[in-house]
Design a protein around this nucleic acid. Structure first.
Lengths: 195, 195
DNA sequence: AGGATAAGTAAACGAATGTTGACTTGAACC
DNA sequence: GGTTCAAGTCAACATTCGTTTACTTATCCT
C-alpha cells in the first residue's frame, strides 16, 4: 500500500483553516470594507483563533491582498474573450449573484480601499484590464480613448449597481433577479458600446 | 447707533469653526469613508481643537449625520422637477465636479456607511427619493416597478462613476470632463429611461 | 512508545481612537 | 476696569485593534 493521499478529515488541518479564514475575510471585507472589519470578527466567523491570521497571512494587509488575488483568479477564470452581445448576460449574472449575504462578493473588493499601496496596485490593475477586455469586445484598439471611456462607464455602472444592492436597501433594485436585470443592462451596454 | 450686526471677523467665532469642521468632515468622510476618518484628522484639517467636535456635534456619529443632512439640503436645493432630456446634463455636471480632491463630494456620502442606524435611515431616504424623482421625469407612476428599477440603475451607474473617479485611478475616466461625460451619459439615460 | 514538529490557544503589549472633564483665554456688558 | 460667560485648549480616560510572545496540544515519523 503506497502513499494514498489521506482524505479523512483531520482535526488539525492548516489548509482548511487557511481557506476558512480567507472565505470569512472576503465576506466581511466585501460587505463592511477594510477598516470596519476587525481581525477578531474574521477569526470568530471562521471559528479559529485570531493569532492564526498572523501565522498564515502575515498581517491584515496581507490577508486583504490574499483576498484580492483570490478574487482576481476567479474572475480571470470566469471570463476570457467574449462577444459583445453576451456581455450583458455575464454582467447580469455577476451582479445578480451578489446579494447582501451572498457568497460571491468579489466585485465589491474592488471598491473597498485598504490604504495599502500594493493592494491598491492590484485593485487598479484588475479594474484596468477588466475595462480593456470589455472595450476590446466592442472593437477597441489602443489609443481609442472614447471607446475605453465608455467601457469604463459600463464597468462603473455595474459596480454601482452591485454596491447599491449590497448596502443600499433600494427596492426594487435589491431583490431584482438576473432575469430582471439582463434586459435593462443589455440596453445600457448597447447604448454605451453600441452595436 | 443701534444694533447693527457686527461683520468684523471675530477671533472667536463659533459659527465659523462649526462650518469649518463640517466642511472638513464632509471632505474626509466622502474621500476615505466613515471608519477610516479620525476626528483628529478632521480637527487638524479644520485647524481647530478636537474637543470642539464633541461640543458642536455631540459625537462622531452626530457629525456624520450633520454632514448627511447638509448634503441632502444642497441636493434638494439643486434639483426640483426636471425634464428628462436635461437629466444627463445635470448628472454629468454633478459627476464631473467630483474630482479626487474636489469640493463637492456630497454624492459619495451616500455610499459611505457609518453603521449608525439613524444615518443609514437618512441615506436610504435620500437614495429612494432621488430615484423616484428621476423616475418621475420618465413618466413613472407608483406601482410601475420596471421604470423605478431603471431609474435606480441610472442612479447606481452615476454613483459608480463617481466612485471610480474619486478612488479608482482609471484613465481616461478620472480626468474626463463634463463635456466628455455628458454624451455617453445621455445615451445611457436614454437607453434606460428612454423616450 | 516517544520525541519532534506543526497547529492551535491564551494573554498581553503598544498604539490609536472616541470621549470627557477641568482649565485657560478672549470678548461682550455693566 | 472688572466681571461673566462662551470659545477654545490641554491632558487624561477607557476601549479597541493589530500584533507578538510564550505556552499547550494534536499529529506524524522512526
Amino acid at each position: 500500500m503506497t502513499a494514498a493521499p489521506d482524505t479523512r478529515p483531520r482535526r488539525r488541518d492548516a489548509a482548511k483553516t487557511r481557506r476558512l479564514l480567507l472565505e470569512a475575510a472576503r465576506d466581511r471585507f466585501a460587505r463592511d470594507g477594510y477598516n470596519t472589519t476587525t481581525l477578531r470578527d474574521i477569526a470568530d466567523e471562521a471559528g479559529v483563533n485570531v493569532a492564526l491570521i498572523a501565522r498564515y497571512f502575515e498581517s491584515k494587509e496581507g490577508l486583504f491582498e490574499a483576498c484580492l488575488t483570490a478574487a482576481v483568479d476567479e474572475l480571470r477564470h470566469e471570463a476570457g474573450d467574449v462577444a459583445l452581445d453576451r456581455v450583458p448576460q455575464i454582467i447580469a449574472a455577476q451582479v445578480a449573484t451578489v446579494g447582501p449575504h451572498g457568497p460571491t462578493g468579489q466585485l465589491m473588493l474592488l471598491l473597498r480601499s485598504s490604504g495599502d499601496e500594493r493592494a491598491d496596485e492590484i485593485r487598479r490593475g484588475v479594474l484596468r484590464t477588466s475595462a480593456e477586455r470589455l472595450a476590446a469586445a466592442a472593437g477597441w484598439r489602443p489609443g481609442d480613448d472614447e471607446t475605453l471611456l465608455r467601457a469604463q462607464m459600463v464597468l462603473a455602472a455595474s459596480l454601482g449597481i452591485v454596491l447599491l444592492r449590497v448596502s443600499g436597501a433600494l427596492e426594487p433594485l435589491m431583490s431584482a433577479g438576473e432575469e430582471d436585470l439582463s434586459g435593462p443592462l443589455g440596453e445600457l451596454v448597447g447604448a454605451l458600446l453600441g452595436r
